[in-house]
Write a protein that binds this DNA or RNA. Sequence first.
DNA 1: AAGTATTACAACCGCCCGTAC
DNA 2: AGTACGGGCGGTTGTAATACT
Length: 464
Amino acid sequence: MNGMPNESDKRMVPKDEIDSTSIEEDSSGGSLNGGNQVLKKGPWTSAEDAILIDYVKKHGEGNWNAVQKHTGLSRCGKSCRLRWANHLRPNLKKGAFTPEEEQLIIELHAKMGNKWARMAAHLPGRTDNEIKNYWNTRIKRRQRAGLPLYPPNINFQVSDENQQSKNVNEYSYSDKQPNELMQGSNFDIPDITFENFNANYGSLSYAPPFPDIAASNMLNQRIGSLHYPFTNPMSCVKRLRDSENLIADLHGTDSDGLPTYEHFLFKSSGKIKQTFGLGYPYDPAPCGESLTPLESAVPGSHALLNGTFSASSPIDGTVKLELPSLQYTETDGNSWLACSSTPLEAADTYIESPATPVSLQSECISPRNSGLLEALLHEAQTLGSAKKKPSDKSSSSTITPGNVAECSGVSISEKLDECNDPISPLGRSASSVFNEYTPPISGSSLDEFPHSMAPSSKYASQLR
DNA sequence: AAGTATTACAACCGCCCGTAC
DNA sequence: AGTACGGGCGGTTGTAATACT
């Protein structure tokens, strides 16, 4: 953003467009409209911009299809609308997002999910597209960094009216499309706040403790379908509840000192459950589908046992990954879930590259970025490296979904125990789970990655 | 230092949906 | 009911910047 030239100063203009002396003459990528006039596609020229601006000044916004008629502009109405909305309209704020804006985006995304336009309404001068692009790059960056999407101190506060009539166990989101629910009249955006976000700005501590990341990623991948489908808050809660049952099933109790999921996932209350259930029906594998704990861990009984996720066997008919509206795994920097990779990352691990190892090396902070995100990433890296140093034996530990491993000779369960996270939802249960369900593997680091287990080229490059 | 590969970002397009007529 | 239009969003592409060899 910062490094990019201002759109108005230096637009990307195809070569075949540069020499164009007339917009009417330019037919790059065009198509015929009803009047057999070639509608131009591709980047707008300054001349076109001027025409459009002039038109809007005279006629106002709207009726975009009339632009072509009135001005002779060889652009379809929609193209005019987008151009105006995203680039030409006044009060557009260009340039990098400020830390405050970044924070707000995170907060809004936690509330709304991928409702870019609605988010843009809260960010004066910003467009939905701009926010979307920002978010997508942020997602990618944080995925690679192994960081959770949301800061730990995100606080989900759901107003009472959001609880309404539904019991947390009653909701059904599998029979509704996301938009139906998101945009439905009954949908209320929960009050989500970043508790002490500003105060903690410089001391965010939600970064995954890196010595644990391998194990936790294995956890993701083993019992990890608990994580994978966490593409929406509701599913997350439900899955957490399922995982709670998992623990109970595996250990006969869910009360052996372990905090409830709500406890460490939400600072405020469990009210969130119902509301988000209405708002985020993206879960590809609704927990209500009565998967047994083991089935949850091994959807389709084949996805995880061999460590590979079969795209041909979507958990619930679709594996399309919706950007999560919430990542419940990161409410507490010390939480077990936070010490694991992000759900999205887990999902990515499954979907994008089943053999993807998870590197502990966080992406370096981009010098082109500044502000909140950088602070978060930097903090994560700092903490990660700090915690990684003392024992070092798990440094650079990587895992593959197909190989729940002993990293550097340390078993996963041991690593989990090392994690020794008192507030882990699984606590030692996690290691027990591993003991029960994970075969030993070898391999210890990304560098030592066997060729056959090498990450996809895409990820390999990203992990560099 | 130069060439190449990768990444980040901006911008556009296409599909879909809701609404108004 | 059908159509036109506006709007939302996911996906894709092109370019500049950066990293790597």
